[in-house]
Simulated assay, not measured.
Amino acid sequence: MPRSRQFDEDAVVDAAIAEFTEHGYTGTDAVGLCERAGIARSSFYSTFTSKDALFERALARYTGRGAGEREELVASRDPAPVVLRRRFADALGDQCARDDRLGCLSVNTAVELGRSMVGVTALLDADRSAWIDAYARILARGRDEGDIRPDVDPHAFGPLVHTTLAGLRVAARVATPDEVRAQLDAFLSALSTEAGREALAAVPACPVEQVRG
């Protein structure tokens, strides 16, 4: 395949991520995708064959972007509650900063489609498992270091951290930034020991401040 063709495909996939995030799977059609990507419908079908195929490629690229962030979060030596707040605040801050509050393609897709498409479900399951494992590792370190409550089971609470962020992303579609921040602070405080809460209080410049109006 010529190098320029590959670059064109990458641009189309990025355009598809934006289009599917804005309109959802059912609200997006080939016409809108082609207009956004600036390609002819014949090129669309010859390259991607169908909307479903492009949707899976877009979702795979979108979820793949989280790998580097997970590595950085797990490798961080900051107190675990601070690391978790950074993860939440980066995601929610970006969303709250947008006028449209569109949020996360993965969460939006899960809400819209559930487990109705096999390929999409496989991508979402893999992404969810990777994030849960990262959260569990962060919680385990935090428990060992005394910042996370000793009764917090990382294997049980890793999924809860993931679900809480997903829920806050949905809530952020309509809630005020102050409401989102209050829920985030309450959740992290409930997970933390006194030392963990002190660590949170000691970093007022944490990216949680990005959750703004």
Rank of each mutant, 00 (worst) to 15 (best):
R87T: 12
A16D: 00
E9Q: 11
F187T: 04
F187A: 11
S46P: 00
L124Y: 01
P154R: 03
V211H: 09
T28F: 08
R3I: 04
L200E: 09
F55W: 03
A171P: 04
D133R: 06
I148G: 04
H155L: 12
P204E: 14
V118Y: 03
R98M: 12
A30Y: 10
P177H: 11
D10M: 03
D178Y: 00
R173T: 14
A16L: 01
A37C: 09
T26Q: 04
A136M: 06
R5T: 08
A97I: 07
S46E: 09
N108V: 15
D94R: 09
E71N: 14
S189Q: 04
T47S: 13
D133N: 08
E56Q: 07
V82Y: 02
T28L: 13
V120W: 00
R143C: 10
R101L: 12
P177G: 14
D10E: 06
R57K: 12
A156Q: 10
A199R: 08
A80P: 03
A166P: 02
Y45A: 04
A171H: 12
A60M: 04
L54G: 09
A110F: 02
E179T: 05
Q210H: 12
V120D: 01
D90S: 13
G103R: 04
E56D: 06
E145Q: 13
R36E: 05
E69S: 15
L92W: 08
A30T: 13
L123T: 01
F20M: 01
Q210L: 13
G93N: 09
A37T: 03
A122D: 01
L160D: 00
R212P: 08
F187E: 07
A58C: 10
D99W: 06
N108M: 10
V107R: 09
R137Y: 12
L59R: 02
A205Q: 15
E69A: 15
K51Y: 05
R197H: 03
A134N: 08
